[in-house]
């Protein structure tokens, strides 16, 4: 049987080539370890390092990354997150949205671009705060848990990129003050930003449940 240090060596190697997905790496470590154990038993003269080098060649990095990608896609189901979008959260998001677009009726059109910059800044800061406080609260075990999804990243980045593109264009053309963002465009962007923040909250609730379930079912995985 391989020693703890040898298992760690396999695990560290997998991590170094980009296999970060928690569930998949456990499985792959076990697969390679078992193969190595069999090979070492069959060929007594071969040492662990030589057998491990041969195993590395047998599992090309490109194939492993591809498998990880498929494993991540299969395990993640965004529909499961919708259960966290409850009535209270929907009402909260409507209230925040209403409060956010109210100033558009009170300030002059020229100041709309400034307001948009403030909102973009706030939404980015708030999203990062949520992500970092989640990671600090739910300490990861030795192996990484992926808490982001393509959907989350896209919904967070989309309003940011659109706003930066629009405002950047106005600045380059020297029309930042003369050509404010149209009210309808402003309202849509704010809607996407508010939705993105609440979607992130929902996603983190889903990840929290996964984390707590894993901790309850497999406490030994969380032992350092």
């Amino acid at each position: 049987m391989l020693t703890k240090g040898q298992i760690q060596q396999i695990d560290t190697y997998l991590e170094s080539i980009g296999i970060e997905y928690f569930d998949f790496r456990h499985e792959l470590t076990d697969h390679i370890a078992e193969e190595l154990e069999r090979n070492l038993q069959l060929r007594k003269s071969v040492d662990f390092d030589a057998a491990f080098e041969a195993a590395k060649a047998h599992y090309p990095t490109k194939d492993l990354i591809e498998q990880q990608f498929i494993a991540k896609l299969d395990a993640y189901n965004p529909l499961k997150e919708w259960k966290y979008f409850n009535g209270k959260r929907i009402l909260n998001s409507i209230a925040v949205y209403t409060a956010a677009i109210l100033p558009t009726f009170l300030i002059s059109g020229k100041n709309l671009n400034f307001l948009l910059i403030i909102y973009v800044f706030f939404s980015v800061v708030e999203s990062l705060r949520m992500i970092f406080s989640f990671r600090a609260k739910y300490k990861l075990p030795g192996k990484k848990l992926i808490i982001y999804s393509r959907e989350t990243l896209l919904s967070l980045l989309a309003p940011f990129l659109i706003s930066v593109f629009y405002l950047g264009k106005s600045m380059i053309n020297g029309k930042f003050f003369d050509k404010p963002v149209p009210i309808i465009g402003f309202m849509i962007l704010v809607f996407i930003m508010v939705f993105a923040i609440f979607a992130l909250q929902t996603h983190l609730d889903y990840e929290k449940e996964r984390y707590l379930n894993a901790k309850r079912r497999y406490p030994f995985l969380f032992e350092s």
Partner: peptide, 17 residues
């Protein structure tokens, strides 16, 4: 597993899972 056809359980085997 994601489709609910299989279920998985993890076990500690010596030095690995």
């Amino acid at each position: 597993e994601a489709d609910g056809v299989l279920e998985a359980e993890m076990e500690n085997i010596g030095n690995r899972v």
